[in-house]
Amino acid sequence: MAEVAVGKVAVTFTVNGVERTVETYPMARLLDVLREDLRLTGTKEGCGEGECGACSAFVDGRLVNTCLVPAIQARGAKIETIEGLASGAELHAVQQAFIDAGGAQCGICTPGMVLATVALLREHPEPTEAEVREGLAGNLCRCTGYMKIFDSVETAARAIRARQDAATAGEGGAS
């Protein structure tokens, strides 16, 4: 059937801080490599065309749609997925905020939405409403109408600032 028959190649990258090598097709979507080869199924597929953001992950510190990244382009990359966000049993502040403020309903957009929020708050620790809307516009949610997601972002931003303030105060006390 196929005019070109391609073999698998070895692709090495780090995922959530661990170096991994997979044997895969060069055109294989990073999404499939994560989900099928590495069994990291927290990264979801909603559309396969970069529209919904359910497959969001960080590649070299930048939020991307993993359905649009061929495996070969992930060679040597530093990849962070939803599975790597919490530190052990302790949830990341954004994850906790999505529980507390009702930002997760059916949950299928949630991993991507949480990571998009992490990206947003890295860039804008105190985001304006317009920055929140723009920052999350690539992650579609059909359940919440986005209001509780906006609340979750605000809750998370406050929690992160409070933690940083506490840490700064702690440092001040020590010096």
């Binding site: 989900r35 069994r39 990291l40 199924t41 927290g42 990264t43 979801k44 597929e45 997925t81 939803i82 599975e83 966000l85 919490a86 949830l91 994850q95 906790q96 999505f98 529980i99 507390d100 009702g102 997760a104 949950g107 299928i108 949630t110 991993p111 949480v114």
Partner: peptide, 23 residues
């Protein structure tokens, strides 16, 4: 009361298994 969603932790950590996650 607005008690937290039962399966909230599984959903925000990506641990919830949807049908396509099952092998």
């Amino acid at each position: 009361q607005s008690v937290p969603r039962k399966e909230g932790v599984d959903k925000v950590t990506g641990r919830s298994l949807y049908v396509d996650d099952i092998v």
